[in-house]
Design a protein around this nucleic acid. Structure first.
Length: 424
RNA sequence: GGAGAGAUGGCCGAGUGGUCUAAGGCGCACGCCUGGAGAGCGUGUAAUCGCCAAAAGCGGUUCGAGGGUUCGAAUCCCUCUCUCUCCGCCA
């Protein structure tokens, strides 16, 4: 969520920049400013009355001690009246504050000035392309058929156990998952990230702080008896580690990596592009998160993009890096790069990573602050995250691109992790 | 699941209705002292909202969370959350 200060002090600029994200509700901005004015004026009134009441209460204590019950009684009557007024003002203030919060969370993050104009995916800008396109015979198999042929991905049994979109990995398929997870984790650790293994369920506070609540609860699996949510990404628990935290500037950047399964209901996304591993309800992902100094967050973003690029290069997958346009970016992001790899049998680009700088948008909701060394003032930190990487589509691309008459060739970099060179 | 104890500042810890403006200690920062360090001495040491152009200053709120009693609550009452101890169950 944006800070009130930013909205108040840069109203016109905020409106201009939000237009790129196709947000045009100017009235909402003005309503927020008006509500904030109202809140401030209510606070001035209630502060004054409370100060008066505090002063009187002290006097009453002294009057009683000095044996002046009449004077004390008089003062009591005055405070009783003040109390009524204060309660009334505070009730109003609670209402205004709640309304303000409700509106504030509807304003998306400001896109970075470099974000391209555009309404949808077709306006995303390709910033880089790399890797070699595999040459496959015309009758190459898509990964869902390969999974069955080599008995490594069993979609039918997964459906029997849970439902569609919950694949069961078997034998070398299961080992390949583990190999990728360990490879991704090891590479992140080498790059200076500290590994955490987070809980897979979070409470309401956490879900709110990273923006899943209040209105994306339909995307999460819920455990209503205990009021918990299955995480849609490790970003949720990892980012929440820093909820209500104040760091010292010299601790920045804080680099964290986590592996976790991710659970997504994907409500309403049936039909297109959901075959096989292209879209599933449970999948494995390694996520990198950075807490950065505001002046260095774009440097951190570049570093994260380079890290992800290194991963797909080492896996020898054809890839491209897209800079998302305003209309295709997420609500919370200021700048996002998507990574896509080419799955040669499907002849499709599959999104495998999304690397974003949220600037202070997430930190504001999280109350994640830092202090310049020696300074008393706290300020919001910048947060960034990226998949490094999400497994299913990587597996899909590896299976499809590396298929041969002999079997599927395991990328060289994974062999130390799999202990086999061929899936056959 | 049963029984009991507890939650106070960065940390430890005192505080059972009225200068709590939260004692004291540790830690940390700065200064004095020292050739330097340590010890010692002194000073300072939370977050957040608001008033003010800003700084300074002033005011409000916060003692696990929320509600209540009272002129006044860290302190009394209610609800909830969490932690610890013992018993039970258990990978």
């Amino acid at each position: 969520m944006l800070t009130l200060t930013v909205i108040r002090e840069n109203r016109d600029e905020v409106i201009r920049r939000l237009a790129k994200k196709k947000f045009t509700n100017t009235a909402l901005i003005d309503q927020i400013i008006a509500l904030d004015d109202q809140r401030r004026s209510l606070q001035v009134q209630s502060d004054q009355l409370q100060a008066e009441s505090n002063r009187l209460s002290k006097e009453i204590g002294i009057l009683i001690k000095n044996g002046n019950p009449d004077g004390a009684q008089q003062a009591k009557e005055r405070t009783a009246r003040i109390k009524e007024e204060v309660k009334n003002l505070l009730d109003q203030m609670d209402e205004v504050t709640a309304r303000l919060q409700e509106l504030l969370v509807q304003i998306p993050n400001l896109p970075h000035d470099s974000v391209p104009e555009g309404a949808g995916a077709e306006s995303n800008v390709k910033v880089k392309e790399g890797g070699l396109m595999p040459v496959l015979p015309e009758n190459a198999w898509p990964h869902w058929d390969l999974g069955k042929k080599y008995n490594i991905i069993d979609f039918e049994t997964g459906t029997k156990l849970t439902g569609a979109g919950f694949p069961l990995f078997r034998a070398k398929g299961a080992k390949l998952e583990r190999a990728l997870i360990n490879f991704f984790l090891d590479e992140a650790i080498k790059a200076g990230y500290q590994e955490v293994l987070p809980p897979l369920m979070v409470n309401e506070d956490s879900a709110f702080a990273t923006g899943q609540l209040p209105d994306k609860e339909g995307q999460m699996y819920q455990v209503p008896v205990d009021n918990l949510y299955l995480i849609p990404t490790a970003e949720v628990p990892v980012t929440n580690i820093f909820r209500d935290v104040i760091l010292e500037a010299d601790e920045l950047p804080v680099k964290t990596v986590a592996y976790s399964p991710c659970f997504r209901r994907e409500a309403g996304s049936y039909g297109k592009d959901v075959r096989g591993l292209n879209r599933v309800h449970q999948f494995d992902k390694v996520e990198i998160v950075q807490i950065a100094h505001p002046e260095k967050s774009y440097q951190a973003l570049d570093e994260m993009v380079a890290h992800v690029e290194m991963l797909v290069k080492k896996l020898q997958l054809p890839y491209r890096i897209m800079k998302l346009c305003g209309g295709d970016m997420s609500f919370t992001s200021a700048l996002t790069y998507d990574f896509e790899v080419y799955a040669a049998a499907q002849k499709k680009w599959l999104e495998v990573s999304s690397v974003s700088n949220f600037e202070s948008f997430q930190a504001n909701r999280l109350k994640l602050r830092f202090r310049e060394n020696g300074s008393k003032k706290t300020q919001l930190a910048h947060t960034l995250n990226g998949s490094a990487l999400a497994l299913p589509r990587i597996v899909a691309a590896i299976l499809e691109n590396n298929q041969t008459d002999r079997g599927i060739a395991v990328p060289a970099v994974l062999i130390p992790y799999t202990d086999f060179e061929w899936i056959d």
